[in-house]
Amino acid sequence: MIKKGGIEAMRTKTQTIQLNDDQLPILPSEPNAYLTFNIQNGSNELELMGNRTGLLLLAKAAFGMAETIREDGFHIHLDDLYGINADGKSILIRREEASKP
């Protein structure tokens, strides 16, 4: 937040996600990206950790998947495509409209 005259103002950033002809997000190669996660035993908490590049890549992938119009089960394996997970954990992003019980 930026403080102006005693009032805190939020900064706004804009990200552009390009879609290819198949309406899938185009994610540029990010060689320095790092992203991983932890799930605590007996917990419902997912902790995502990464450097700035890895977290931006995750955000772009998630936003791109949210905007895609495909309904054929397409998904993104960030760890396979971008080699961002040195811990050997799989990070998969998929759009699913129906909520599960």
Rank of each mutant, 00 (worst) to 15 (best):
D22G: 14
Q23P: 10
Q23E: 10
P25N: 13
P25S: 04
P28T: 08
S29I: 14
S29Y: 13
E30Y: 03
E30H: 03
P31C: 04
P31A: 08
N32E: 09
N32I: 15
N32C: 15
A33T: 00
A33V: 06
A33H: 01
Y34C: 03
Y34N: 09
Y34K: 09
L35N: 02
L35F: 04
L35D: 00
L35W: 03
T36C: 15
N38C: 14
N38V: 14
I39M: 12
Q40M: 12
G42Q: 10
S43W: 06
S43D: 11
S43M: 10
S43P: 13
N44F: 09
E45V: 06
L46I: 09
L48Y: 04
G50S: 09
G50H: 05
G50Q: 02
N51P: 05
T53K: 08
G54A: 09
L55F: 02
L56Y: 02
L56R: 05
L57W: 00
L58Y: 03
A59C: 12
A59M: 07
K60R: 05
K60M: 06
K60P: 11
A61Y: 01
A62P: 01
A62Q: 05
A62C: 11
F63V: 07
F63A: 10
F63R: 00
F63Y: 02
A66V: 08
A66E: 08
A66H: 07
E67I: 05
E67C: 09
T68P: 03
R70I: 06
E71C: 12
G73F: 02
H75R: 06
H75I: 03
H75L: 11
D79S: 08
D79C: 04
D79G: 04
D80E: 14
L81S: 02
G83Y: 13
N85F: 09
A86Q: 15
A86Y: 13
A86K: 14
